[in-house]
Design a binder for these strands. Structure first.
Lengths: 141, 141
DNA sequence: AATGGTTTTGACAATCATTATCAATAAGCG
DNA sequence: CGCTTATTGATAATGATTGTCAAAACCATT
């Protein structure tokens, strides 16, 4: 049976509050900063559960960290500033269809896709390109 | 000055030979298996160099491992079997344009994108879904 | 072919995110 | 309230990747 604990609620609340994507480590740090004594392992578990039940979605930053964000439950992709982490949700029906088709054309089933765009947002574009949390090169366009 | 060493050639050759994407660890294991005494750190460095100079492209498996593949130097994306690692190169001009546009529309510059489709290939679809090297859920479609 | 200045290598330690362990705790049912 | 069992959390373990640094290799030059 699944039980409701204040820890899980805390993680869910912190996720809802967070702007853009956050790492499990970052979320744990945030929670601690607000006085919550929640354990790190618990944050990982709660995030994994939320992602599994569709209440959060996850992606990997180019450095390989897993990032999570509260999910509005409809499918979308993300435009992420590689300097400040600002995230914009983008809808892309065209891409959805394309992904499904291209998989089918090659005999693939159960297709999942990773479609995310990293760049510099209008605010960060002028500043020095200090490699922030979202730096290392993805597959080059 | 950049120097040519047999180690770098070995990595390049092993990459060319490999089917689909391989991890640095895997490539190192393969090289050892064929008798090469190359060091693990060297494989990492060689792969990073190859990726930096555009001779290889890299992506992250859903588990967060960095995977590399010899690059044919024109830009494309990948359709990857999450069970056996079979990789199909796919071209997607439409997606290229879409990514560029969506970034521009939101004031983003220097856009890079991560567009890869994971699924089960025709061969693996029937077999039991044993979670192979490419298992954990990406952003759900 | 020998020399010398630099780059590269490789064994190993260090780092860092994530997962496993397992006794102690707390949820929810009766 | 008491019992059963899922959950927590401190810590150890894991596993990929990167840093360190002396020794070896590369290559232009002599």
């Amino acid at each position: 049976m699944k039980r409701n604990t204040w820890q899980r609620e805390a993680v869910r609340a912190a996720l809802d509050t967070a702007e853009g994507f956050v790492s499990a480590q970052g979320l744990h740090a945030t929670l601690h900063a607000t006085g919550s004594p929640i354990g790190l392992a618990t944050v990982y578990r709660a995030l994994a559960d939320l992602a599994a039940e569709g209440a959060a979605d996850s992606l990997q930053s180019p450095e390989g960290e897993s990032l999570y964000r509260a999910c509005t439950n409809d499918h979308h992709h993300h435009l992420i500033c590689r300097n400040c982490g600002l995230t914009v949700e983008i809808e892309a029906d065209a891409v959805e269809i394309w992904a499904k088709n291209v998989a089918a054309e090659h005999g693939f089933s159960q297709a999942a896709h990773v479609v995310d765009v990293f760049g510099l947002c209008a605010t960060c574009a002028p500043v020095a390109p200090s490699p922030g949390r979202f730096a290392r090169g993805a597959s080059r366009p």
